[in-house]
């Protein structure tokens, strides 16, 4: 019960900040329109499929979920530095109430964000069918790694630093290494090896497989993503628990 009350508060805090709506919901849509226009201008003989809607929609869904790191991190950091968290730490709330309370709104926002992205992608040719639901489900799972990243950094950085790390830095890293904006196969070599070692490229591929209905292709990619997710969530919980037990309140 406490976690839902806290989650409701966190949802309100995020949705009442217009910048969050602009970045969280508006930015992926702007990119969708822009990159679709660019794709339409690419001649067929160039054989560049990177911005085709079947590649672009899952890429932007994964990219959009990166903002959950920013939302979760900023909220936690502000709560910590404003002593609001200190107030809550003296309440009977437990660690699970806090972690779930911060994570649940991000999961709901990811569902909304990916649904809007996929439906908007329908206007550019993405088939609107039952696979969209699978795409939303996989995007939501993918977002857990970013929620964990936000909670980890929000546990010890101030909100400006979180903005830098989870906003500017992470969005760039994910943008470059996920294959959303850069043709990884074309570059190949060491760059491709690095992208294969990290979870971002696999995040996009897992969503792509879900959207295209190739469900058996989801697991190998999702397994890599979930490995990183468990790691970052564990780290976030350890740091948060350390704060709760009090040396960094």
């Amino acid at each position: 019960m406490k976690m839902f009350i806290f989650a409701k508060r966190n949802t309100k805090e995020i949705l009442r900040d217009p910048m969050n709506l602009i970045f969280g919901l508006g930015f992926p849509l702007v990119l969708l329109v822009l990159l679709s226009v660019i794709n339409a201008a690419i001649p067929a003989e160039a054989e560049n499929t990177m911005f085709q809607i079947s590649n672009l929609a899952p890429g932007l869904a994964a990219f959009g979920s990166v903002f959950m790191a920013l939302f979760a991190g900023m909220l936690l950091s502000k709560d910590r530095t404003s002593s609001f968290l200190m107030r809550l730490f003296t309440s009977p709330m437990g660690a699970a109430d806090f972690i779930a309370g911060y994570s649940l709104p991000m999961l709901v926002l990811t569902v909304a964000q990916s649904a809007i992205t996929f439906l908007a992608a329908g206007a550019f040719g993405l088939p609107i069918n039952a696979n969209i639901l699978a795409g939303i489900a996989i995007t939501t799972l993918v977002s857990l790694q970013f929620i964990g990243t936000g909670l980890f950094f929000g546990s010890f950085l101030n909100d400006k630093a979180v903005g830098g790390v989870c906003g500017a830095l992470l969005t760039n890293v994910v943008g470059w290494l996920s294959g959303v904006f850069i043709p990884i196969d074309l570059i190949g070599g060491v760059f491709k090896k690095i992208t294969n070692l990290l979870p971002y490229y696999h995040s996009v591929e897992a969503i792509k497989a879900a959207l295209s209905g190739h469900f058996s292709d989801i697991f190998p990619h999702l397994a890599v993503v979930m490995g990183y997710t468990v790691l970052i969530l564990a780290l976030a919980i350890i740091v948060f628990h350390h704060n709760m037990n009090g040396e960094n309140v």
Binding site: M1, K2, I5, F6, R9, K12, E13, R16, D17, K78, S82, S83, F84, M86, R87, L88, S91, P92, M93
Partner: peptide, 24 residues
């Protein structure tokens, strides 16, 4: 606490109801 420690984007009423709810 030393800082005001309120939920900035919540109204006065929502802040009060939030803490009351957290205390059961």
């Amino acid at each position: 606490p030393q800082e005001t420690a309120v939920a900035a984007n919540l109204t006065v009423f929502e802040n009060l109801a939030l803490i009351a709810g957290i205390y059961g």
